[in-house]
Design a protein around this nucleic acid. Structure first.
Lengths: 334, 334
DNA sequence: ATGAAAGCGCTAACAG
DNA sequence: CTGTTAGCGCTTTCAT
């Protein structure tokens, strides 16, 4: 137990043992071992409650034991779940998490990535929302990078977790097609900002293949953000028979909108989500959605980073396959 | 634009301008101003893409522009929402967030708090789950502390956001009492670990006042964690007529349990939550709960900290009053 | 096997 | 108004 108010430093241990700072530094890491000196130093360190100062370590240039996790928007419920899962997985590896939230803004995303690099994170796990670009390439030079979802072309990642968007979107659209839906509104996050996102590309491609009339409506991530957009779409005279939201959180907003307008789901309109948040089986009606196995995503991402930090294989890649979960919110067109 | 692969430092600017490192440092902060030198330095800095190294700053002892946010468990949906709200509020103040998740473990909570202090956060916002204790007192000596929910007696906080638990629990229990419920199971987080938590204390007190038969059942935070406990309680021969969960996430688990057992809510059993997560109005049946105005909580907590950092008033305190939101999940005992 | 010293990038005395 | 110097706590040559 430290009795004083100040944090003990190597200096303190050195003084207490009569050794030099350097010797203590070595001893604590058992490097240039002196069997019994190590013993003595460890004892004193424990007694003083010594912990290496992570900041000094970082400045010196060593590992910080911290990795940055950068998500597109914590307003999105599924990303909250993902962030939690990643964090838990990192801690299981004894790694500290620095979680940052771009809040839907690609510029913020870049700024935060830079900031995290500045903080000397040992690695960066990012579920990118903005486009790839030179900045990401620079970042990937400074710190090992693992991407989830979107890929960052040009950046040297040590691992990629990608979703099979084509399969996911395909499953959903085929499901709706089978039920007789032909005019579908696709509520998706911020198409305007990042027009080449894989999900939207997959939508266009699959819609064409199935000869579906899919209109992509840009909208905010969160429940409250998507509700007004959903209302707008649902009140049109030529209301679509189905709404496909590219995240469950957005679908919740649509569900809420339907409730406000007195529309029956799936009687009047079918609604489909996209990531299978744990609550999607509990909302009313329960939500049909494509499920992505969040835990596996987290485990893979952290695994890639941990492998790299341990000096093992790089450039790994996992493709996560979707599983269509049909629940109550979709039905035949009436 | 930096052309090289290395981060520019004060040294680089100094060389480029022919000034000393110190002069540049001053100039950049416009401190010992030399009107036109400042201009020149700023220009070069921008051109080089200079940003002060937060790690070096931290080691030196200045502000880091980062505050730590420590929550009890990110498995709890409402705490996810809270964390997001706080983070957003902090960023509005230009402050970076270091979010840590104790994952329901008081020991982790303490370890993480220490770690955050080690990282030189400018302040700590904590929604404590563990008991107050000497360690917290020490921590509060090193860094301004704001608590949310639980209070940490003995620790010198610069602000406290407290929930009026007595009122909240009272509203809920009176509501259930009015509906005729007398035997109520209270699902609450980890009573075993931290027996003196205010919520549980309030439950005991209010239950006694209303002559209710309240059994407090310890259970995990998350949906999946609470489900088995809920099942266990609901399958008893003397099944309670109502379940009061001390967080909405726990209530969702109970809801799920009821569905599995084919119990009608609120026909067979009433269920009540406690924090009004945004999705509680969308689950089926929609959840009766006590609402705490998350945004106000976040704003108050961040406000207290910001005020302190700006050298303004300390020891502030806000009491958040509950609002009982009666929805579909509670009904008269049959 | 241990010690002395340099340096990571920055800020704050203390000169000039 | 600007330069010199010291030092935050740690790791790592280079000597001993």
């Amino acid at each position: 137990m430290a009795t004083t108010g100040k944090r003990p430093t190597l200096r303190d241990i050195a003084d207490a043992t009569g050794l030099s700072v350097a010797a203590v530094s070595y001893a604590l890491r058992g490097e240039r071992v002196a069997p019994e000196t190590v013993e003595r130093v460890r004892a004193v360190a424990d007694e003083l409650g010594y912990t290496a100062d992570p900041v000094a370590r970082a400045l010196r240039g060593g590992r910080t034991g911290t990795v940055g996790v950068l998500v597109g928007s914590l307003a999105d419920f599924w990303q909250q779940t993902l962030a939690h899962a990643i964090q838990r997985e990192l801690r299981a590896q004894g790694i500290q998490t620095l979680l940052a939230d771009a809040d839907g803004d690609p510029a913020q995303e870049l700024a935060l990535a830079r900031r995290l690099v500045d903080q000397r994170v040992d690695g960066l796990i990012v579920a990118p929302i903005g486009p790839a670009g030179g900045v990401w390439a620079q970042i990937s030079e400074r710190v090992p990078l693992v991407t989830i979802g979107g890929r960052l072309h040009g950046a040297a990642t040590v691992g990629e977790v990608v979703f099979d968007q084509t399969a996911g979107v395909g499953e959903v659209l085929r499901h709706l097609h089978t039920l007789g839906h032909r005019r579908i509104a696709v509520l998706s996050w911020a198409v305007a900002i990042s027009p080449d996102r894989p999900t939207e590309a997959a939508v266009r491609e699959q819609a064409a293949a199935l000869v579906l009339d899919c209109e992509i409506v840009p909208c905010a991530y969160s429940l409250d953000g998507s509700r007004p957009l959903a209302l707008e779409v649902l009140e049109r005279p030529d209301r679509p028979t189905a709404v496909f939201a590219t995240s469950d959180a957005i679908a919740y907003g649509a569900l809420h909108g339907c409730r406000e307008l007195g529309l029956d789901v799936p009687g009047d309109v079918s609604i489909c989500g996209f990531d299978d948040h744990p609550l999607s089986r509990l909302v009313a009606p329960s939500l049909t959605t494509a499920s992505w196995d969040t835990d596996r995503v987290a485990r893979a991402a952290v695994g890639f980073l941990a492998a790299h930090l341990a000096g093992e294989a790089d450039g790994q890649r996992t493709v996560i396959e979707p599983r269509l979960v049909v629940r109550e919110s979709t039905g035949p067109v009436s």
